[in-house]
Design a binder for these strands. Structure first.
Lengths: 208, 208
DNA sequence: TTCTTATTCTAACTAACGTTAGACAACATA
DNA sequence: TATGTTGTCTAACGTTAGTTAGAATAAGAA
């Protein structure tokens, strides 16, 4: 087996196991989908990046669609876990702005600094085949529900502007966070600062 | 010439002129790019929707890249014109929130209700070939400058929260407006209401 | 009516795509 | 060492993509 373009997973064995190779394929796919979209990424490209030939990918996955569905779902699961974890931690503070801040930071960190998978989901979801989209929607909806729960609890504690439509706010919040993918450069920017900047506007508003 | 899938441009001539056909090709391209992305849209698909065969497209355009560059630039020009027009009209009100509101509405209206081109730009810019991206960036920058001008003038009039980073706000604003493309359905929603909902949060903030 | 011009069609090219089946190689175990 | 199992390579398939050059057609002008 020739050299791989990804950092190789260290094992005591010369030849990687199927789970390891499978992971390598998914990592490559997530990275490429994130940057170029679904249709523009070929199996040969993914295989090349994973250090193998395209035909070999079929030992691990049934189709390109199966790969992208797994990338999409993993992406949402990761950000869901991160936000859930932050929510659980921040809850006891009983501060609405603290809770929202921590969850926003968790979302942005996952999206911008830790997961090609989450980035890929955001960038390509709208362009994958319909069948894949339908399958991925299930996990996506769960994440939306998590945010509804977070925002709902803050509102129930009387800490939100009463006139704000929570559904719209959630759409706007996640939309604006996800849109940072188009311009934020993780190598030259600080996610924490970015989150704080966004939160200031969202929580306090723009006008004097 | 067989029936076209687009509403035909009414002329006194039996056979459309090149400009008319050219427009039809661009309309088809913008529509398809918007929905499926760049790579997934074929010349044959565009030609089919424009009511011709793929080879004929080459009489009007040199390449697929030439088509997409034109779609991208037209998209930005349209939203730029709309926002510029709203800015010019709202200026005399001397009300910061009025100015911002009108410009936001202009942006959203163009994006969601009037222009496949603008929608296409937002959705595919990050995925077109590098060379196209570089070319399209010029026009894009001008639109960003327009917003910088708008926000700068409101701030200079002392009507903005002093601590807000204008560049960040602009990125966040345009990002969140553009993200509405992923979920807003123009056939079942009201753009004006959407704009008002967003503005309320952005101008007044979320917290009590 | 004929000629000219503009526009579209057609057939084909090369390259690339997702996928398949079987050969091959590497590793583990008896 | 031989055998069995796992994982990769290879060659090929049928299809699709962007593009090209020349033929064909339609419309307008003389």
């Amino acid at each position: 087996m020739k050299g791989s373009l990804l950092p190789s997973i260290q094992t005591s064995k010369k030849r990687p196991t199927a789970p390891e190779t499978r992971q390598r394929i998914l990592d490559a796919a997530a990275h490429l989908f994130k940057d170029a979209g679904y249709a523009a990424v070929s199996l040969r490209g993914i295989a090349d990046m994973a250090g193998m030939k395209a035909g070999s990918v079929y030992y691990h996955f049934k189709s390109k669609e199966e790969i992208v569905l797994e990338v999409l779902n993993t992406g949402i699961e990761r950000v869901h876990d991160a936000v859930q974890s932050s929510y659980d931690d921040a809850r006891e503070s009983r501060s609405g702005s603290r809770i929202i801040s921590e969850c926003v930071k968790a979302h942005l960190n996952t999206l911008l600094a830790h997961s090609d998978y989450t980035s890929a989901n955001v960038r390509i979801y709208g362009q994958v085949p319909q069948t894949v989209q339908l399958d991925a929607k299930i996990v996506r909806r769960k994440y939306e529900s998590l945010w509804d729960e977070i925002l709902g609890s803050v509102k129930a504690a009387g800490q939100l502007n009463e006139t704000v439509d929570l559904r719209l706010f959630r759409l706007m919040l996640i939309g604006s966070l996800n849109a940072t993918l188009e311009w934020f450069d993780p190598e030259h920017g600080n996610v924490e600062e970015l989150a704080n900047g966004y939160l200031e506007i969202l929580l306090n508003g723009l006008m004097e």
